[in-house]
Design a protein around this nucleic acid. Structure first.
Lengths: 161, 161
DNA sequence: TCTGAAAGCCTTTCCCG
DNA sequence: CGGGAAAGGCTTTCAGA
């Protein structure tokens, strides 16, 4: 991956409806090589997918809750099952295993607090959890799917912008 | 919005490269009305954008850090500036104003702990913060841009699947 | 690897139930 | 609102350097 790939990724992270010819123009290539590069980035899995991003308020998914979970000590199999059960919930949009005093962190999306309560009950009905603590987001100030590209490692001979 | 729109959204949240004709087939419409519905969903802002989702490991953005921030009591202007300054950082991919004992929560993406430390220094150099606490994610078990559609409010007469 | 042009497929429009 | 068919535009392939 060189700086042209990086430019292409920057554009497509922002707007994947751009025509290949447009991307090509902006990075200073003609369409064919640009098309091939995008193809390669997809094959290599650098581009994982192309998706539509929806407005949460318009589909009644206004509230984000961060759920901190402490599990009791369990076997590897239990932890695997725990991951699977939690991941199955559509309301869980992000799910991390953490270092520090919290074992897991979930980002849960629901319409309101009542729906969160219902979700919570369904969750604990499916799996035993030692300790759960919920923090409600009052406002989503920033949310982006664009990952920082500044840390990308370029091949030798590509040190400029 | 009816259940056909919901089906369309479900498909496009998953894969926005689907041809309109394919989406149409899967929801049981022909291309023209399906195209019109997608158009409308875009105009109404239900579909906010279409983006490429990248693999974090392939672009050297492996580590997620959750940063809990407590601010001192400040004016509305200061809080506005705080939001702007924090949002400017590409490493901050999510940023929430919270209820409870933490005032703000940031999801920060960096390649490693050293890069996080550098980010942290740049952040506190730009704005004064009372208290910062960082939690590192060891593993991203689930990450999806797909919001739950089950809570969507449909127009009267659309109560089925 | 890049360019330019040709072929094929989709999107988008038009007009009719 | 939904459908079929035509026009226009993009994507994808192919040949040449």
């Amino acid at each position: 991956m060189d700086r042209l790939d990086k430019k292409i990724l920057r554009l497509l992270q922002e707007d994947s409806t751009l025509a290949v010819a447009d991307v090509a123009k902006r990075v200073g290539l003609s369409t064919t090589p640009c098309w091939r590069r995008i193809q390669k980035l997809e094959e290599e899995g650098v581009i994982r997918r192309r998706v539509a991003v929806l407005d949460p308020t318009k589909i009644n998914a206004r509230v984000t809750v961060f759920v901190s979970v402490r599990t009791a000590t369990h076997s590897v199999e239990w932890l695997k099952r725990f991951s699977e059960v939690v991941s199955e919930f559509d309301e869980v949009v992000e799910f991390y295993r953490m270092s520090g005093d919290v074992d897991y962190l979930l980002r849960v999306v629901v319409p309101d607090i009542a729906a969160y309560d219902a979700f919570y009950k369904r969750l604990i009905a499916r799996i035993e959890i030692r300790d759960v603590s919920s923090s409600f987001a009052m406002e989503q100030i920033k949310y982006t799917t664009e990952l920082p590209l500044d840390y990308m490692i370029l091949e030798k001979g590509d040190r400029d912008a």
